[in-house]
């Protein structure tokens, strides 16, 4: 029976998720970050490795932000529940964006005097920096102690900032695309669908 099959797969998926502790995700992400850096040092990122490294870290962060946003809709639509990974997903997104920012700061722009000017003058950098700054309180309050301290209502309210961060992150990406790119449209559509889904769930709960 197809229905039983689907639920079987869902059960297995959820079993697998529970079976993989989140520290494996942290180690995997750190290993990827180190590996890409190594590629950059040894010529594996092409002729111009700085922009490529910056781009890889930025995109990895962007993907994890999107995955984090997808956790709840995915549970609603498919029953697959990644909730026990969500903290790791969010923190990994934060660390990739931090790495992205450091590559931009130390390897790409290089001049600290130029950085302040860039943040004010270049809308895509303003938007990207705003997204990063908003990620900081979320990263800081992602531990159990902060969750208890804030209490579930305030904690959830604060972590709704993810929606703002995702929109700013997407805008940051769109603002630097040159020419018309299909990927840019695809990311925007995916994020829009996920955000609409989450907002609907929120309003459905209230009513």
């Amino acid at each position: 029976m197809p229905v039983a099959d689907t639920s079987d797969i869902v059960l297995r998926c959820n079993g697998a998720v529970r079976g993989v502790p989140d520290w494996i995700l942290y180690i995997g992400a750190a290993a990827y970050a180190a590996w890409v850096f190594w590629l950059g040092l040894t010529g594996g990122l092409g002729i111009e490795p700085i922009k490529e490294l910056e781009h890889r870290y930025g995109m990895a962060g962007f993907y994890f932000v999107i995955i984090g946003l997808a956790v709840t809709p995915m549970r609603q639509w498919t029953g697959v529940n990644l909730i026990c990974w969500r903290r790791a997903i969010g923190l990994i997104a934060f660390f990739f964006i931090l790495a992205h920012l450091l590559v931009w700061l130390l390897l790409d722009v290089q001049m600290l005097s130029a950085i302040g000017k860039d943040i004010v003058k270049r809308p895509y950098i303003t938007v990207g920096m705003a997204a990063f700054v908003l990620m900081i309180p979320l990263a800081l309050t992602s531990n159990n102690w902060s969750m208890r301290r804030l209490g579930p209502v305030r904690w959830r309210k604060l972590h709704k900032l993810t929606y703002v961060i995702t929109i700013l992150g997407c805008l940051h990406y769109l603002l630097q695309v040159r020419g018309f790119r299909l990927e840019a449209v695809a990311y925007t559509v995916i994020i829009a669908v996920l955000l609409i889904a989450r907002l609907r769930m929120g309003s459905a709960k209230k009513s």
């Binding site: 950059g40 010529g43 002729i47 490294l53 390897l107 860039d118």
Partner: peptide
């Protein structure tokens, strides 16, 4: 004259690797 999205004051000569100076 800057590009609308980035500065044109400096450039990176291709071939300098990961720690190439501007």
């Amino acid at each position: 004259v800057d590009h609308a999205r980035w500065s044109q004051a400096t450039e990176r000569r291709i071939g300098g690797g990961l720690f190439s100076k501007k």
